[in-house]
Amino acid sequence: MVELLYGNRAANTLGAAAPALDLAARDEVVLKQVEIHYCLFELPMASALPRLPTSLHPSIPAILGITVWRCVDGPLGAFSLAYLGLACRTGIKPRHFIHGAFCDSPQVGTWLSARYGLHCQTARIHNLETYDRIHSRVDLNGRTILDLVTHGPQQLVGRGATVKYSPILNAATLGTDSALVQMETSFEFHRVSRGQPMASVYNGAALGDATLAPHYPVSGTFSLADVSLHPARFKLDLAVPAEQGGARKI
């Protein structure tokens, strides 16, 4: 028997509190000029594997992704959003499995939960681009739980002025079943810069998983992009590996 590298988290630790998906919601939403701060850090594989369900492979090395959006206007109104996830694979496809999310608009949080199973706590979120850094902060119940800075951002030009955001996966309830659901997004970039990320405050427990923390910086990026939110398209069985048919269309 060949030994394969999958996550080893029990499925029943994910489905119980998963948000119910509104399968009737099929409209497209386009958000203009969204500011996105996206930081990647490596972390020990030993801390990542127990947090991924068996339907997901880890990435090697294990990577923690932190994403902060600031949307100043649009069909959902002004809002900021922050979410954290582990890089993973469904078959050969890169994804991030989300373990914590925050939104400063309860209405948008409810919308994201129903559309994609992205369960958001209400929090104050700060996202600011200055000449020498990108700064994001999440305050929950008056306490700063995340303080994230990308230092020395340099503008990327030409064909390189894009970021390949890995689609995110959330545990959700579809009828009576629990599954992983992908948040379907596409991006049209206006500009992108890249620098060195640093998390000066990282409260793992408050951010959704006390066992995960950034260890080694990979990259920090800031982009200004139009973001299209598409209807959810597929679900992934929590326990069946993707290459064995665990991924199905909704």
Partner: peptide, 18 residues
């Protein structure tokens, strides 16, 4: 594909013009 898929390509982790 299973083996290669677990690697982290530069384009996934570190946006760069090259």
């Amino acid at each position: 594909g299973y083996m290669a898929g677990q690697t982290v390509e530069v384009s996934e982790a570190y946006p760069a013009s090259n």
